[in-house]
């Protein structure tokens, strides 16, 4: 980790600082999200605001950093605002959606909105799979269609937000370069 590497983010110190800011920002989003009821008829659906951080982070930080930011965020926010159960759900969703989004960012032709939608959908799939494993009921598959569409919608919202913010983030980063 500590190896000084040429990266678009500049010095290692700067990179670590950016990581820290992103974790803090993601935590904030997770916290704010606990106030936002997002009722889709199925319990547990969230907007996924913290995904904004992953989405934007992937555009200017090494993937490993963003992954760590995401994992740290999930760990901390589950400890602070959730419970052990929610940790497993979030972890599964977080890992799956990160992998999916990371792969898409490396390919041409997907905008932030598309990447975010894919991330949202994979996040929900990860959660249902964990839930099905833990509760040992296949009945949960019945929620899958709703959760897929929900992931699409929340993903699109978060993606649109990210698109709005993108130019500003870029500017901010340049002003520090």
């Amino acid at each position: 980790m500590a190896v000084a590497r040429k990266s678009p983010t500049g010095t290692p110190g700067r990179r670590v600082a950016l990581d820290g800011i992103l974790v803090a920002l993601a935590m904030l989003f997770s916290y704010i999200e606990t106030f936002i009821p997002f009722n889709f008829g199925v319990p547990g659906i969230k907007l996924g605001l913290a995904n904004l951080v992953v989405l934007l982070g992937l555009t200017f930080l090494p993937a490993l950093d963003v992954f760590l930011v995401s994992m740290v965020r999930i760990l901390l926010s589950s400890l602070l605002f959730g419970n052990v159960m929610s940790l497993w759900y979030s972890l599964a969703g977080g890992i799956l959606s990160f992998l999916c989004m990371w792969l898409l960012t490396r390919r041409e032709g997907y905008s932030l909105i598309g990447i975010s939608m894919a991330g949202g959908v994979m996040h929900n799939i990860g959660q249902v799979l964990t839930a099905a494993l833990i509760v040992q009921t296949i009945q949960l598959a019945g929620y899958l269609p709703v959760l897929l569409v929900a992931g699409l919608v929340t993903g699109a919202i978060v993606g649109a937000l990210a698109k709005l913010l993108m130019p500003r983030v870029q500017k901010a980063l340049e002003s520090y370069a």
Binding site: L28, I32, S175
Partner: peptide, 18 residues
Amino acid sequence: NHLNKTIALLLALVFAMS
């Protein structure tokens, strides 16, 4: 600076939405 402004804008957006 820009970074602060960005964060402020983000926050404002999120609050408005919530």
